[in-house]
Each structure stands twice: as C-alpha cells, then as structure tokens.
Design a protein around this nucleic acid. Sequence first.
DNA 1: GTGAATTCCAACCCAAACGTTGGAGTTGGA
DNA 2: TCCAACTCCAACGTTTGGGTTGGAATTCAC
Lengths: 196, 196
Amino acid sequence: MAWNTAETKRRLKESAVAEFAAHGPGGTTMERIARRAGVNKERLYTYFGDKSQLFATVLADELNKVAAAVPLEHLDGPEAVAAYAAAVYDYHAEHPELTRLLLWEGLLDLPEVPDEETRTDYYRTKVAAFARAQRANLISDDLPAADLAFLILALAGWWYAVPQMARMMHADEPATPDTARAGLMRAAMKLAAPKA
Amino acid sequence: MAWNTAETKRRLKESAVAEFAAHGPGGTTMERIARRAGVNKERLYTYFGDKSQLFATVLADELNKVAAAVPLEHLDGPEAVAAYAAAVYDYHAEHPELTRLLLWEGLLDLPEVPDEETRTDYYRTKVAAFARAQRANLISDDLPAADLAFLILALAGWWYAVPQMARMMHADEPATPDTARAGLMRAAMKLAAPKA
DNA sequence: GTGAATTCCAACCCAAACGTTGGAGTTGGA
DNA sequence: TCCAACTCCAACGTTTGGGTTGGAATTCAC
C-alpha cells in the first residue's frame, strides 16, 4: 500500500476535531484520536507536535471557519438581521463540533487566542455591516454596532451553550428547534428595529 | 487537635468547586483538590465517592444556587426586565466559578442533570414572573414567556461564555464591564417593550 | 538497481493520577 | 477505664496516557 501523508494528516485532524469537541482538551486522549483515525499514535507527534499544540492547531483552523461562517454583506433592515440570526442558529445546528470548540476555548480563557488577528478581521467585517446599516438608518442605532452584533450572536448561541438550561426553562412547554428559531428571529428583529 | 468532619467536608467541597470550575472535570485532579484544602486525598473518597460522583455533587449543590440566584418576584415593566438582566450580569461577574460550572455542565451534555427537579422549579418561578407581567400587559407578549426569559439570560451570559469572541468583536472599541452592562440593559428593555 | 530519506507502526518508558490500605490518633459511651 | 467507632494520613498498587524509540516498509533521486 502506498503512503499518503496528506490523507493521513487529514484523517488525524478530522479525528482530533471530533474528539476535542466531544470531550474537551482535558478529556481527550491522543490514543483515541489516533485509533479513531485508524493511524498510529506516533504520527500525531511527528505531524502536529504534542497535545497542546495539536489542540491549538485544531482551534485555529476550525474556529477561523466559525468566524468566517454565515456571510453577511448587506443588512437592509430588521428582517435581514433576523435572517442573519436564524442563519447563525442553523450554522450552530449543522456544526455542533465547532460550537463546542468555541465554548471550550472560552473556558480556557487564554489571554490570546490562536490566530486572533485573522479571526478579529472576520468579526470586524460583521460589525462593519451592522455599522453601515445603522448609518443608513436601516436599523436601530441606540446600541453600538459591536454590541448589537455580539448580542445577536448571543441569542443564537445560548441555546447550544447551555442546552440543559434551555430544557429546564422550557419544561412546561418544551421548545423545538423550530420554535426556538422563530423566537430568536422575533427577538433579533426587535433588537434591530429602529425607533418609530 | 480535635476532629472536625463538617469543616473538613466544607473545605474539600469549596476546594473542589474552585478546581472543577477552573480546570473542568477532565483537567482537575483529586490530588490538587485535597492539597488546596489542606486535607488528605483519601478523605475525598470516603466522603464523596470517586471523582465523577464528586463532580456530580458539586454541580448539584452549586448550580442550584445559580438557578435560585437573582430573585425575581414582580416585573412591572421593561425597566424592571432590564434591571433583572443587569442583576444577572452582575451575578455572573461576582461568581465566575458558578458560571463556568454551568458552561461545563452544558458541554457534558448529560441526558439529565443533577437535581434537575429542583432546578427546574426555580426556573419555573422566573418564567412565571415573565408570564404574569405579560398577562398584565406590562411587557411585550409577542414572545413566549420562557423564550423571553431564556433570551434575557442569554444576553447576560454570553459575555462570560465566550469572552474571546467579545474581545475580538470589540477590538476597535474595547468594551468595559460598564459599557457591556449598559448595552445589555438597553437590549433587554427593547426585548421587553410592549408594541406601541 | 541502490542508497538516502520518508512514512509508518508495535512496543516501550515513565510520570501522573486514580483509588486503596494499614495503622495511628481521637472520641464517646458502657 | 477500656473498647468500638470514627477521623485522618503516609505510603502503596495499578492503570492510564503522554511521549519516544527502533526498525520495517516504501519512495525517490541518481
């Protein structure tokens, strides 16, 4: 059988993403990552360095995707903000591993984050879109653009950050993904609505 | 020196809360918990069972506090909702360990949570307060009460869940705890404002 | 084709951490 | 006062898991 280093690396990283997302940096073992990829453990060390380096690599590569995800060029009103919030919500649903990596990164509370520059730039473009819409009087400007953008993401992300709280708060009338999504859109719209 | 089992237990649990909150279940060692408490490791096992039992105990005891925290009897309008949001935000700031435990619990994604009954009841009272205010036409009723309450908590908690994202999104105009708090209150008020 | 460099793995080393044990000190009741 | 029960700890056994090594299979340059 021929060597295929690119494929081996890919498999290892894919496996690392899954394991780190599922169990966090502390709960993950190099052994398991390698086994899941069907590759010898030693490959991890030669390709990616030790465990913490591997974790940093995974964070940098994957969370860049999160920051870049869900394109946002033009916001022409509160409805567009609601649609954006819904798209972020859907993105979380489709990529639970990335959401979990993001939360785990938050818990590490590093003074600086892998690839902070690039990711900051991505977020900057989102904030800029909100700021433009504010200047054009298309959406409310009583919150700083960065706050507004951040809080929209909060509405979408909180469901995934504390699913147990979501379950307990909705004990009497269980929330489905659809009702959650609808409520989220309505809330986003209200946050973005310009004063009458 | 006289024995003092109650005090020993208290010290151990306090220490466990701090360690688990800081490093998560995976990153915490029984050794460190015991050392921090100035007690022998073996005490942990006789008093609390193994590591996972200890973690479950800590979660149950401490997260009950979170659910019960920030009293909320009567909401007489959007301003009261904003004040509640701010109080929750302040609570997170004062008890970062509990916030972190909550997030860690969320990441474990257990099918059931320690002490789920009791905690559900606490959350139920919060939702009920929102529902009462809605029926009295004091706040907006275009969102289900549970959704509204949950999203208010989202606004307050997201800052602590993903501090790195907060930092990156506010790169150009750094947010202080005060500006964050002010923005949060404004947002909460808008979510709760009845339609004109 | 041959040898140097590369990819891969089984087996190993060792430190860390979980959990236990045997025994010494302390208490309280009969 | 004596002993049964309890509190505590130092030291230990064992497993897990991070990281390495020696060597076999493969590739590629010449």
